[in-house]
């Protein structure tokens, strides 16, 4: 075999090196839970192998009709969750600005009063009998996703004696490779609690924090029904493979 370029299926590219300046470090004493759960040794770095370049795939056919509608997906028939009604939407891109189609997004959140439906939840705000707090969707061919929900309330949590989380929605993101696996949280533009949240502040770069803040999107509201927030998400990009020396399989 030669080093010619051939029009045959190429092995997927390795992922670009992760820029850890954009992420929280493991050990962040301001967020007390991290102190005993943070590895102290350096991570071992290596160029991604097939084990990281590949990842599970999920088909649109696994989705139920209301998986992306938290206003009704847990509600009794004919009823709806209480709270400010919103649509959250955006595009999933990689670092090369290429849309990532067909990937699973899962999201979870507190209800409008800031209360989670979870056995270990300790906030005294009431449950909403019509709100479960879970939804999921799969990006379309252009990497877009959207879901309907109610805006979650802020909530207190036991860290300092009086820490409050800004309103937020948790996200779990797949990609096309397992090295892109990510969980994060989306905040809402204008929330004064963002600045003083110990979990937000595990990230040191203000510009990185700003990329977790969804923008009010008046052009995509539904009058008398839903307000809208736009939240674009970027997962790791792949290097090109044109000139990689592919010994295996040749």
């Amino acid at each position: 075999m030669t080093d010619r370029l051939v029009n045959a299926p190429q092995e997927a590219g390795a992922f670009m090196e992760r820029d850890f300046s954009q992420h929280p470090p493991a050990f962040t004493p301001g967020y007390k839970s991290s102190t005993l759960r943070a590895p102290k040794q350096a991570l071992i770095s290596f160029a991604s192998t097939l084990s990281e370049k590949t990842g599970p795939a999920f088909g649109h056919n696994m989705l139920g009709e209301y998986d992306n509608d938290l206003i009704i997906n847990y509600a009794k028939a004919g009823e709806e969750a209480i709270g400010p009604r919103i649509v959250v939407h955006g595009q999933l891109l990689d670092q090369n600005a290429r849309p990532i189609p067909n990937v699973l997004l899962e999201f979870w959140q507190a209800n409008a009063g800031g209360r989670y439906r979870h056995k270990r939840e300790g906030y005294r705000a009431p449950l909403d009998p019509n709100f479960g707090g879970f939804g999921r969707t799969i990006t379309d061919e252009n990497g877009y996703y959207w879901f309907r929900t109610i805006k979650p309330g802020p909530y207190p949590w036991p860290n300092g004696v009086n820490d409050w989380r800004p309103a937020h929605i948790h996200f779990s993101l797949f990609g096309s490779g397992f090295a892109q696996r990510l969980v994060s949280q989306m905040y809402f533009e204008g929330d004064p609690l963002i600045k003083i949240c110990p979990i937000v502040n595990t990230i040191s770069d203000p510009a990185a924090i700003d990329r977790l803040v969804a923008r009010l999107d008046m052009n995509n509201t539904v009058p008398m029904d839903l307000s809208a927030y736009r939240f674009d998400i970027v997962l790791r990009g792949r290097r090109s493979t044109f000139f990689e020396n592919r010994k295996e399989g040749n």
Partner: peptide
């Protein structure tokens, strides 16, 4: 300009609501 990866945040104590409802 390459885009920057969306920052990670903890899954939090209620991660099961989203992953194992």
């Amino acid at each position: 300009d390459y885009l920057k990866e969306t920052p990670s945040q903890t899954g939090g104590p209620y991660v099961h609501i989203g992953m194992m409802p």
